[in-house]
Amino acid sequence: MIKARIVVTLKNGVLDPQGKAIEGALGTLGFAGVGSVRQGKVFDVEVDGDDREKAKADLSFMCDKLLANTVIENYSVEIV
């Protein structure tokens, strides 16, 4: 079994209204000095097998097809 973590984030230049809302809420809660907040998604995935390179390629394909909107999002795949 291979375990991986996929992190999906918005590309630079893409507006992030949820990040802005979190940034404002942190200020309202008294957390001063927060300059910028960008939100993202994390997926922890387990795949069968022991070929790490194949798993990474398969996980990247999953991102391209479903887990990330590659027009506006970047992703990284880390085998853990």
Rank of each mutant, 00 (worst) to 15 (best):
V45E: 01
Y75H: 04
V47C: 05
L66E: 01
V37L: 01
K65T: 10
F43C: 04
D64S: 10
P17W: 09
V77F: 00
A57P: 00
F61Q: 11
G13M: 14
Y75E: 05
D51I: 05
E73C: 12
G19Q: 10
A32S: 14
L15Q: 11
N74K: 07
V47N: 02
D58P: 00
K56T: 08
I22A: 13
L59E: 01
Y75K: 01
D58G: 05
G27Y: 09
D50P: 00
G24M: 11
I2L: 15
K41R: 14
I72E: 07
V34P: 05
D16R: 09
G24L: 12
L66C: 06
V34G: 02
L59P: 05
L10N: 11
V8L: 12
T28Q: 14
F43G: 03
G27Q: 06
V71Y: 06
D58H: 07
I79L: 15
D16M: 09
L59Y: 03
G40D: 01
S36E: 15
E78W: 03
Q39G: 06
Q18H: 15
N69Y: 08
L59W: 04
A55R: 03
G33V: 03
E53H: 08
G40E: 05
L67W: 05
I79A: 03
D51N: 14
T9H: 11
E23A: 02
F31G: 00
D16H: 10
V77N: 02
A57V: 11
G27K: 13
V42E: 13
G40Y: 05
V14M: 10
S76L: 03
R38Y: 08
R52D: 08
I2N: 13
S36Y: 13
I72L: 11
R52A: 15
K3I: 10
V77E: 02
L26I: 00
F61Y: 04
I79N: 00
V34R: 03
G24I: 05
A32M: 08
G35N: 11
Q18S: 13
K3C: 09
I79G: 01
K20H: 09
K3S: 15
A55P: 00
R5I: 15
T9M: 15
D50F: 03
E46P: 04
T28P: 00
T28D: 11
L29D: 07
N74G: 09
K41W: 06
E78T: 14
L67S: 02
S76E: 12
K20V: 14
E23Y: 00
E46M: 12
D51C: 09
K54S: 11
M62Y: 14
G19Y: 10
N12E: 15
I22L: 15
K65A: 12
L29H: 03
L10S: 12
D58T: 12
